[in-house]
């Protein structure tokens, strides 16, 4: 088992390197670069740059060098100094930009994740156990709607309702007076108030998804011989449910748990833009749009790393949860 984990961790390095190169290359593919974007923005504000000034700026930022050279310099700095480069847009080191948004992103993502497990798993179990009852139809219908509605649309609808009912569309994560204020009880309460819509919106699609998966898995497991045997032995219905089918039904959920790692760190993107949330997603989106390539590159690199690690974590968790898989490992 340990050997297996070590092997997997070693494999991560070339995979991530490979991904990082591809990422860096793809970011450079679209025509134009940060400087042309920047000067276009400036000229829209009546502040015109001459081609000479643009070339100078390119030279200053090192954008006039060939891609492989830029990549090599970037990678070298990451490996030797832990320096992920510089965000042109923010005029700050990439790590500082990411750090600025990390706290709130994690809070929103984790609360959303807890929301989605807490809501989906019990409903999934309920709809399976009470298959074809009114409750099942109700929740199944709801989950289909949840799956089919785009997140951002739901965000817009909820904002509209919030605006017409309470006169406040609840944009952002804080009321204006708390944005730059130090942390206090009031600020936390304000944050919680503003988190209701984002959590529901971001969590709903995956919740709906999870309800369907959980229901399907449970239905598979409910009539397995071990369940029938347990029932024949006179175990209580409740105990049977949680000891056997639920445990087995959790398998696919745990195996996808690791994948959500990268989404935890990014937060939702489109929804965050619609709701004006200060999360990593929009930062990343703007970095890509503005060709702020070190920020975008570092981001994609992190995501790649997290996805690879997440898969590993999922595998380990699965082995821990499922005796059958564990035995396979031992067999190796």
């Amino acid at each position: 088992m340990l050997q297996y984990i070590l092997k997997r961790i070693l494999l991560v390095i070339p995979v991530v390197l490979f991904i990082s190169f591809i990422v860096f290359y793809i970011i450079q593919l679209p025509p134009g670069d940060y400087v042309s974007n920047y000067s276009a923005k400036m000229s829209a504000a009546g502040d015109v740059m001459t081609p000479v000034e643009m070339d100078e700026m390119r030279a200053n930022l090192g954008l006039d060098r060939p891609i492989y050279e830029q990549y090599f310099v970037w990678m070298k700095k990451i490996v030797t100094k832990g320096d992920f480069g510089f965000s042109f847009n923010y005029n700050k080191p990439v790590t500082a930009v990411i750090k600025q948004y990390m706290g709130l992103t994690l809070v929103v993502s984790l609360v959303t994740m807890v929301f989605h497990y807490v809501v989906a798993i019990p409903i999934g179990i309920y709809t399976a156990v009470k298959q074809y009852t009114a409750g099942d139809y109700f929740f199944s219908g709801l989950s289909f709607i949840g799956m089919a509605t785009p997140n951002f649309l739901l965000a817009i609808i909820l904002m509209y309702l919030s605006y017409t009912w309470f006169g406040d569309p609840l944009l952002g994560l804080f009321s204006s007076e708390y944005v730059n204020a130090p942390w206090s009880m009031d600020k936390v309460l304000d944050l919680m108030k503003h988190m209701v819509i984002p959590v529901i919106v971001i969590g709903l699609a995956s919740t709906a998804d999870l309800i369907r998966i959980m229901r399907g898995q449970m239905l598979d497991e409910l009539n397995k011989p071990n369940v029938v045997t347990a029932r024949a032995k006179g175990l209580s219905e409740f105990k049977i449910l949680f000891k056997y089918p639920t445990r087995a039904a959790l398998n696919p959920i745990v195996s996808t748990f690791g994948w959500s790692l990268s989404s935890i760190f990014t937060g939702a993107t489109i929804t965050a833009i619609v709701l004006n949330l200060p999360l990593q997603g929009p930062v990343m989106y703007n970095a890509l749009l503005g060709q702020d390539m070190y920020l975008a590159g570092s981001w994609l690199l992190f995501m790649a790393l997290l996805t690879v690690l997440g898969t590993l974590i999922s595998d380990i968790l699965l082995a821990w949860l499922d005796p059958k898989i564990r035995t396979e490992f031992r067999g190796n």
Partner: peptide, 16 residues
Amino acid sequence: ILSVVLAACTNNAGPA
């Protein structure tokens, strides 16, 4: 995990 993260972000969540 949640509590570790929450504890950690009280330090850097503020943009100030």
